[in-house]
Design a protein around this nucleic acid. Structure first.
Length: 346
DNA sequence: AAAGCGGGGCG
DNA sequence: CGCCCAGCTTT
């Protein structure tokens, strides 16, 4: 039996029921694919439900403010996905009369849509024969065929894409693509897959050679850097604080946070007080400074570890541009800030 | 080609 | 603690 047939037979028996499998509406498929980039289904599912409920059509999404979109995305990470999602929705509405692109090539023009996502939408919604290559596909193909080209290299990119394109079922690319991903997620898992119940066991290279745990090959990432974050939580007599929007290019772009003093080493209270003198908010003010968390909160990103202290700055008088404490929940914030807001007794 | 970008879950 | 997740964009 062919690779494709074995795979799709497995899929017909083992596939999970998921909301985006009940539709071929490109708007919903697009939403699901963006949400699921680098994200496990269990984590992305509630966000998908929220998005389709809040923004039932691409017009609703396009008409929203970016902050509303980011708020709904809060906690999911990789926030450029949300910004690009919103940008692309406006593009579809304003430039394409709300009609989604219907080819791989045109889909690629949407911000946030790369090779994988364009292939997924084109195949699932329009039956275009273009193979998806995601983390699951890398794993399944590298093991079954014994390919040790690093998956995070340009050579690996081309090699696996070409192989998947050979294997894909030309008559039903949508089912094949979803089947290979589902197979990778459910059966050919990263750790300790149960090969005794695998339909490919008799012909799988990695199983035969006992190299399951060595495939796929991936070039290791550089070591993570450490940063020291000092957030200033201002409190005023009339129950406001200060929240600012992150600018520039780094992490959490366009999300909100408490005023931040970043340093290369941990700051003592004395060192921080010196920094405070330069702040506009503090000028001419008397205040009382206290440290909220004695032990630093370590927030781990893919390649940064953020050693975080929250400093409470109790001001004697009110300020002009304060954010009412009651309005805090309306702003999109990084989960690190969100956790603090939830825990702190304002 | 390499770096940057989140947060959660698992062994 | 390291690794992985329905990857993309920028440098």
């Amino acid at each position: 039996m062919s690779f494709s047939k074995t795979l799709t037979d497995w899929y017909s028996v083992n596939k999970r029921q998921l909301p985006w499998r009940q539709t071929t509406n490109p708007y919903y498929i697009w939403l699901s694919e963006i949400i699921l980039q680098q994200t496990q289904i269990k984590q992305g599912l509630p966000y998908y439900e929220n998005f389709v409920t809040t923004f039932p059509t691409v017009f609703d999404l396009a008409n929203a403010n970016e902050a509303e979109v980011l708020k709904l995305w809060q906690g999911l990470g990789y926030y450029s996905r949300a910004r690009n999602l919103h940008f692309a929705a406006k593009y579809v509405v304003n430039e394409l009369d709300g009609v989604f692109p219907d080819t791989y090539k045109e889909l690629l023009k949407l911000k946030g849509v790369g090779d994988y996502t364009a292939s997924a939408i084109a195949s699932i919604c329009y039956n275009e024969v273009t193979a998806v290559v995601d983390g699951n596909v890398y794993r399944v193909l590298s093991r079954y065929f014994g390919i040790d080209t690093p998956i995070n290299s340009s050579k690996g990119d081309k090699e696996f894409k070409a192989l998947a394109q050979e294997l894909i079922d030309k008559k039903d690319p949508a089912t094949f693509n979803q089947a290979v991903m589902e197979f990778g997620a459910v059966q050919c898992k990263p750790k300790s897959p149960d090969c005794t119940v695998c339909p490919f066991v008799s012909s799988c290279y990695a199983f035969g050679k006992h190299v399951i745990s060595e495939l796929p090959v991936k070039i290791k990432a550089a070591k993570v850097s450490k940063k020291y974050f000092n957030f200033l939580v201002f409190l005023t007599p009339n129950h406001t604080t200060v929240l600012e929007q992150r600018q520039g290019k780094g992490i959490w772009q366009n999300l909100y946070q408490f005023p931040l003093i970043e340093s290369n080493k941990p700051l003592t209270q004395k060192q921080l007080e010196l920094e405070l003198k330069d702040l506009d908010i503090i000028k001419e003010q008397t205040y009382e400074l206290s440290l909220y968390n004695k032990d630093e909160i370590v927030h781990k990103l893919s390649h940064q570890h953020l050693y975080t202290k929250f400093w409470i700055v109790d001001l004697d008088s009110n300020i002009k541009e304060g954010t009412p404490i009651a309005a805090l929940e309306d702003f999109p914030v990084p989960i690190l800030i969100g956790n603090f807001i939830e825990a702190f007794n304002f």
